[in-house]
């Protein structure tokens, strides 16, 4: 089933840092063959359209590399603001916390596995970390 990458964003990112994150993460997914990416934004207090776009980009890029991205831990104020701004981050999976994010990833990858390869059905994923 492959393993997951967990990225925790600790500060409000400068634009260049955010762009670096995008590049680094895609590299890491390729290098490690990770099937899932968790981005923990619980410490991020502001997500503007730029940051939103980076998150969307990462999700789309990992998607075509056959890895799912889940954004976890979004602050209520950030969620309310994004909705008001008209940026619902369509296409990005979200979960309340890292634990629930992992659960979601396992489920997603499992469902994908079933669809792609029905032989794997009797081997439930247990290699997540």
């Amino acid at each position: 089933m492959g393993h997951f990458l967990l990225v925790t964003i600790q500060v409000d990112l400068y634009d260049r840092l955010a762009l670096n994150l995008e590049a680094d993460l895609v590299q890491m997914v390729s290098k490690t063959g990770a099937r899932g990416v968790l981005i923990d934004i619980s410490a991020v207090s502001i997500v503007d359209s730029f940051m939103g776009r980076i998150i969307g980009n990462i999700a789309n890029m990992t998607k075509i590399m056959d890895a799912e991205t889940v954004v976890v831990g979004m602050q209520p104020a950030v969620a309310i603001t994004l909705i008001e701004l008209g940026l619902p981050l369509t296409g990005v999976h979200t979960a309340l916390n890292v634990e629930k994010g992992m659960e979601l990833l396992r489920k997603k990858i499992l469902v994908d596995g079933e669809a792609d390869n029905s032989d794997d059905e009797d081997q439930p994923g247990d290699g997540a970390e």
Binding site: Y14, R16, S45, V47, Q75, P76, A77, V78, T81, L85
Partner: peptide
């Protein structure tokens, strides 16, 4: 480009000073 985050922090300072709630603060700073 670096001024963006610096400016945001400055706005946050003032918003906190007048006791603006967290949601309104986040909206303003965004």
């Amino acid at each position: 480009e670096q001024d963006v985050v610096l400016f945001r922090n400055r706005v946050k300072e003032y918003a906190t000073k007048i006791g603006m709630g967290i949601v309104n603060q986040t909206k303003l700073i965004t």
